[in-house]
Amino acid sequence: MRVVYFAWVRERLGKGSEELELPENVKTVGDLIAHLATLGEEYEAVFAVPQVIRAAIDEEHADHDEAIGAAREIALFPPMTGG
């Protein structure tokens, strides 16, 4: 699955996107964030406080309890500050 990052999430991880093989037990956005937090020091720091992370599944906003299902692309980013 493709995971894309924006703003300080992208900057602190040092990458804008990556392809990840997800373990079976990763079913929701929240599971994905918890899984990412185990991938290394930078990941742990970025995803330490899951509540500050917003998500989109295939370009639609998604809550943390939403199922990932057969999503093509998951985006993780801080609260938006456009306008």
């Binding site: 924006f6 703003a7 300080w8 989109a56 906003h61 985006a75 980013f77 801080p78 609260p79 938006m80 500050t81 456009g82 306008g83």
Partner: peptide, 23 residues
């Protein structure tokens, strides 16, 4: 403001990137 995926980063006078703007 709250639903469109845009993020602002400040660039300071005199060089150097500042902070990401908080929601």
């Amino acid at each position: 403001k709250t639903e469109a995926p845009f993020w602002k980063k400040e660039h300071r006078k005199g060089g150097g990137a500042g902070e990401w703007v908080s929601a």
